[in-house]
Nucleic acid binder design. Structure first.
Lengths: 316, 316
DNA sequence: GGCCGGGATAACCGAATGGTTATCGGGCGA
DNA sequence: TCGCCCGATAACCATTCGGTTATCCCGGCC
């Protein structure tokens, strides 16, 4: 029984899939499957079994899960405790859904580290689906994105979700667009669009956009550029596309049910289990400094500009 | 950071010695030293440092110790949880100081398993010094012997400690024996005599018996047989030597300060952390059945009889 | 019936773990 | 000052771990 094995089990149980667990851990699928097999043999219990659409815990697995989770947590505590005792800088591991990472997280973290002395911050992209597991297993301290159930969610940034297209698009001049009309367009999205738990994903699901119509771009900028070129429609964050709309490069489609007023949240564990740096960041988010940093993005990121994508950072 | 490493660290910290930890784990000293070195390197902190007469925790070590201990405990919980979920019999791991193991523990455990259906019981011998660490790290469920600080101690068996010798011994006919007189005799003891935390060890220390005068026998029976043959004096449990005294094979010396009225205890973790089988055994101890089983020993174990010693059982 | 997605398994590999015996080295007591 | 006790280290070894790629297998679904 090793900690890696326990962690593999916990993530499989939490995410309901070996594949997802492997992706979170940044290893191949057989690696997770193997770790799970080893633990199964050691404890002489299947722990999780395949069922139609997901994995289900055995009675043994149900009992072991909280224990295993706590062990993994304590391992994080241990390294943390010794770090702190040695006066090392706090660690702040932020994960965000792709859109948030692209426009909000980086300036926020930059401002935060400048304000709050020595903090070692890292930023990673993940899906909203995986985010709870990452936070619960202490693989990350803060998760920026949609509100997550079972966690402490702190409002971060208000925004408005619209649907945009190029000025030449067939629907660009419509007075009113029915969901059915827009559903069969080509949808140009970033990774959030492929994640059913983000606002974009929910929007696509709500409009019943078929998967075949969705084209995933490495980031929203690229999607908007393609939309401006008339390749299809795209989800847009109102204040981020404002400039492009003003200049006529993009048009906001009057789709039924939009605009959607939404909030991004900073999700963390409850106070007693939250890391110190996470608490600090939560507090920082409410300051004018943070507001300023997060809003600065709208001006500094024109549609045409292409940035290197933020890669998933892995912590073992 | 592996569980073995954590356990090694915890035991070294608790016992204040690498050697003792190695003995508890039943491995060589470099094995423990190596595990500790690995953990030290991983956490980048010495954790424990040698000081004159013992090992002392660093600030980092102080913080890690409770965490590490809990992790080891949880590992035990995990296996236990899955065992129970599968309906496997409860596990009852009893450790006792040598004298208790020899005369009391075995009949007690036998009676207990006969009464309380399916229980998988094991019995091991250890020193009173190591006993707290064994219980705290869940390497054992119940520790029978002297009362231990920091644990729940449940009175088990009242007994009376005396000093005995053969009828031909120089002091056998004395009206009154001063501590100084008896201190320089040859003392024939079992393993408890070498353990400063047992009653026997305390008695020897109190009388200031020099180490050179102490001969350790594999069990008390053997020591009494040697005492009966005139080879020296021995500590005696009054009701266990009664028959030999009646038959004139042994004589109780009127040593100043003896007899000592003492109690053996069943030591366990506090109720919330105690294993189910430990709770059951505690309760069983108060029943007439248990009393009867424990007292039966006095009749059934004459001095001359030699039994195979109870070996230390190791659980990993 | 055949494809396909996802989990298990096989075969393999390097590195780490966990253990041994033998040896070194540093305090501390006689 | 000389041993001695005890922890650290060296050298070595078998096993396990953690990872890979390739392949198999099974249940759903077109």
């Amino acid at each position: 029984m090793t900690l890696t094995q326990l962690e593999a089990f916990v993530l499989v149980a939490r995410l309901g899939s070996v594949k997802a667990a492997a992706s979170v851990l940044g290893v191949s699928e057989p690696a997770v499957s193997g770790a799970l097999a080893a633990l199964r043999q050691h404890l002489d219990d299947p722990l999780v079994v395949r069922t139609g659409g997901g994995m289900e815990l055995t009675p043994g697995g149900q009992r072991v899960l909280p224990i295993a989770s706590q062990m993994v947590n304590l391992a994080a505590d241990a390294t943390d405790a010794v770090r702190r005792a040695q006066g090392a800088p706090d660690l702040l591991r932020v994960v965000a859904t792709s859109t948030v990472a692209e426009y909000v997280a980086r300036p926020l973290i930059t401002a935060f580290t400048q304000r709050h002395g020595p903090v070692e911050a890292t930023l990673g992209v993940t899906t909203a689906t995986e985010m709870p597991a990452l936070l619960m297993e202490r693989l990350a301290d803060v998760g920026l994105g949609p509100r997550l159930g079972g966690l402490d969610s702190h409002p971060m940034l208000r925004h408005r979700l619209v649907v945009v297209a190029g000025p030449e698009h067939r629907l660009a001049r419509a007075e009113r667009v029915e969901p059915a009309d827009v559903a069969h367009q080509d949808w140009l999205v970033d990774a959030s669009g492929a994640d059913p738990a983000t606002e974009t994903g929910i929007l696509l699901a709500h409009l019943r956009v078929p998967d075949a119509r969705v084209r995933v771009f490495p980031n929203l900028d690229a999607a908007w550029t393609a939309a401006a070129a008339g390749e299809g429609v795209a989800p847009g964050i109102a204040h981020l596309v404002a400039e492009d709309v003003d200049h006529g490069r993009l048009v906001i489609l009057p789709v039924e049910g939009t605009p959607l007023d939404l909030l991004w949240y900073a999700n963390t564990l409850p106070p007693d289990r939250r890391s110190r740096s996470a608490t600090k960041l939560r507090r920082f988010i409410d300051t004018p400094d943070a507001m300023h940093a997060m809003h600065r993005a709208d001006a500094s990121v024109p549609v045409a500009r292409f940035r290197p994508p933020v890669y998933v950072t892995l912590w073992s």
